[in-house]
Design a protein around this nucleic acid. Sequence first.
DNA 1: GGGCATCATCCGCTTCAGCGGATAAGGAGG
DNA 2: CCTCCTTATCCGCTGAAGCGGATGATGCCC
Lengths: 156, 156
Amino acid sequence: MDPERGGQHTGCGLAAKITRMIETRYPDHRTRPGFAKLATEIREHTGKPMSATYLWELATGRKRNLTQETLGTLAAFFDVPAEYLLDDGVRSRADAEANLTVALRNRKVRSIALRADGLSDHTLDALLAMVDEARRIERLAPVEERSDDAAGPGDR
Amino acid sequence: MDPERGGQHTGCGLAAKITRMIETRYPDHRTRPGFAKLATEIREHTGKPMSATYLWELATGRKRNLTQETLGTLAAFFDVPAEYLLDDGVRSRADAEANLTVALRNRKVRSIALRADGLSDHTLDALLAMVDEARRIERLAPVEERSDDAAGPGDR
DNA sequence: GGGCATCATCCGCTTCAGCGGATAAGGAGG
DNA sequence: CCTCCTTATCCGCTGAAGCGGATGATGCCC
C-alpha cells in the first residue's frame, strides 16, 4: 500500500473543492443538478468526456489523483485556474511564488517582470538593487525571500 | 487510439519541456546523467517514486497525460511551478494570466517582480523606464504587450 | 395506487499511467 | 581480447483512472 509520505494527509481537499465549485455554480440547492445532469452539462460545455460516476467519486474523495486531461476539463467548466485544482500536496516550492500572480495583478509590475526577462544577470542585479532602494524610500517592509538554491545558474 | 478532440493536436509540448528542463539543469551534456541516474536522483531528492522508463516515455512523448502526483514530483525536482508542466491544451481561460509565469523561471526576475509590488505608480514608472532602457542597451527586442484583457471578465 | 424521471450509490469492466526487468550498444579499465 | 558499468530502448505486467450500466430511494404527475 502506499503510505502518505508527508505524514500530513492531504486527501480530502480536492473533494471539498469540487463540492464547493458545484455549490458556487448552482447556489440554489433546490434546482442544483445531480451528478448525471452535471456530467452531461460538462460534456456539452467543454466537448470533453466526463461521467457521472466519476464526478461522484471525485466529490466523495474516492478518486483524487486526476490526470491533466480531467483537470483541464473541470478547470474549463468551472472556469478556475487549473492550478487551483492541484491537490494541496502537489505544489512545489516554486509554486509558493505563484502567489506572485497576485502581485502581478498590478499592470505595471507585470510589465516590469515581462521586460526584465532576458536581461543579463548583471543588469538584473542592478535593477534588484534599485527596486530594493525604492522600497526603502517608500518605507515598505523588505521582502523576505528564501534563498536556498544550490546550483541554479540562470536558465535559458 | 485517442481521437483528436480539438482537431489541434497539442502533444509534443510536454516532451520538449521535459527535455529542456533536463538540459537546463545539466547544461554540460557530457556529464548529464541518463534517465536511470536521473530517476534515482529525482527519487532521492523528492522522496516520491519515479522510474527511468517513465522518464524516457515522457521525454520522447510516448506518455503525456500525467497525474497530479507525477506532475508534482517533476515540478518539485526541477523547481518550476506545477502549472508550467500542464499540457498546453489544458489551461482554462482563467489561466491566461499565469502565462507569464514562464518568464518568471528566471530567479532574479522573480525577485524583482516580488519586490516591485506595492511601490507607488510613480516609482514603477521610473523602474519601467529603466528596464526598457536596459533592454535597449543590451539590444533585446522591445517587448510587445497585448492589451486584450483591459476590461476584466470579472472573475478573481 | 401505478408510471416516469432523477437522484445517490455501487459493481464490474476497459484503458492507460507508471514501473520492473529484459535487451543491445557504447565506453572505460584490466 | 573480455568484463563491468551506463546508456537508450523495449516488452509485459500491475494498479488505478475513468466509465457504463446496474440498483434502490425519492418525488412528481396521472
